Amino acid sequence: MDQSKRILDGLLTLARSQAGPIRQHDVDLADLVSGILAGAAGETTARDLAVRARSMARPGSRVSSSCLNAWSAT
């Protein structure tokens, strides 16, 4: 079990070292969501759907990029 743990820890360390530095930047989520909804407008109209977006985040709050990536990939 110890050897398996050491191997996994080593692989994780290797993966992190090759991933490069994490880049952080501010994103205006209102603009992001507006753009996504505008891009989907034709599809929602064709399917007779109504879509509303409402922010529940506090202004200036931060969201991790992994959260944004997971959200945009679905």
Rank of each mutant, 00 (worst) to 15 (best):
I22V: 13
R6N: 04
I22Q: 13
Q3M: 02
S72A: 15
S72Y: 12
Q3E: 10
D26F: 10
T45R: 09
T74F: 14
S64R: 10
S72P: 04
K5E: 04
V51E: 01
V33D: 02
L8K: 03
H25Q: 13
H25D: 12
D31N: 08
R23L: 10
I36K: 10
P59H: 08
R54W: 07
E43V: 01
S66L: 11
E43H: 00
L32N: 03
W71R: 12
M1K: 03
V27R: 06
S72R: 15
G20W: 06
S55N: 13
S4A: 09
S65D: 11
A30E: 14
L68N: 01
A70V: 09
A40M: 11
L32Q: 05
N69A: 13
R6L: 10
S4Y: 01
L32A: 09
V51Q: 01
G20Q: 02
A40T: 00
D28H: 11
R16M: 13
S72W: 12
A73P: 01
D9N: 05
A70M: 07
L29E: 02
L8R: 02
T74Q: 15
A30H: 11
I7N: 01
A53C: 13
T13H: 15
S65V: 02
D26R: 12
L32S: 04
N69H: 10
